[in-house]
Structure formats: structure tokens, C-alpha cells
Design a protein around this nucleic acid. Sequence first.
DNA 1: GCCAACGTTGGC
DNA 2: GCCAACGTTGGC
Length: 159
Amino acid sequence: MTQVRQYWLMKSEPSAFSIQDLARSPGQTTCWDGVRNYQARNFMRAMAIGDQVLLYHSNADPPAVVGIAEVVRTSYPDDTQFDKAGHHYDPTSSRAQPRWDMVDIRYRETFPVAVSLDRLRQEPKLKKMMLLRKGSRLSVQPVTPTEWAVVTKIARSRT
DNA sequence: GCCAACGTTGGC
DNA sequence: GCCAACGTTGGC
């Protein structure tokens, strides 16, 4: 069965893990661990290999979509939920019934000029984009094909 | 550092 | 099931 390619947006704080960190990772690939929100987790569970991901830097100056990655492994248990010493430890989870999942993504490109939050807000076609909705804090969210096209077009233009 | 918005927890 | 308290996110 042919899977329609899906689009997503994933946030990270560049001080914790930036797109540059991803580009320097072994195989330019990383597991996206630490997600502790059910909606975000469910979106990761819906991802398929080959899905395209906008990488967004939050708590950055300016906050911006900075590039593209690709899903290379579908969801599997996030090891950090079992690590008692780790910041992402979840005592209510067990190896028999893991609560939190992660996916692997691989670096694809860094935009020559990042598309800032301000710039995105100027775009009428992105009015409904989840990222721009007031109070939206989801770290993993779906992007429509139209939104994807608009964002990547801005990224490739000179203005 | 501030604080609005949101999610989760837990007492009742 | 309600909702107050609390913790987190993330723009500013």
C-alpha cells in the first residue's frame, strides 16, 4: 500500500539540540527522545519512514524554522523514560508497557536564511498553521502540504 | 525574568 | 467529574 508522504514540524531549543547538532550527529541521524506530551507522542506514532520534518528552533533569537529532516525510523520506546538518573525519567512507565515513544530523523538541509516566526506570521496562507496558533506549545505537530509548500518556498526565496 | 496558555495531578 | 494547584512551554 502506498503511503502518502506526510509533513511535520518538530521543535527543539538550539541550546539543547540544534539543527547543527543534528548535522554533526553520527550518520546525521538522531533519536528524538524526551517528548512527554501525549498529543506529540501520538503524532510521532503516526509518522512513516520518508515523512518530511520542518525543524524549528524555539527559545531562539529569533525563533525560526531552520531546515528540514526526514523520518528514518518509525516510533519505538524512548529509552530515557527508564533512566532513573535522567531528566526524562518516568516512574509510571515500565519496559513491559512503555508510555513514551520516539522516532529517528536524519538531517536533510539547513535553510540559507531561517524562516523566522515573524516572517511566518506575515503569511496569510499560514494563518491556520498550528505553530502560529495562540498558546500552541506542541513540540511535534502536523503540517499540511500547503503549509509545507509555503514555508519551503519562503526559505528558498531571497526575501 | 515575566507571564499567558496549556497539560497534568489529585483532593473532594 | 470538577477544579484548584502546580509545572512546563516558549514568546517577549
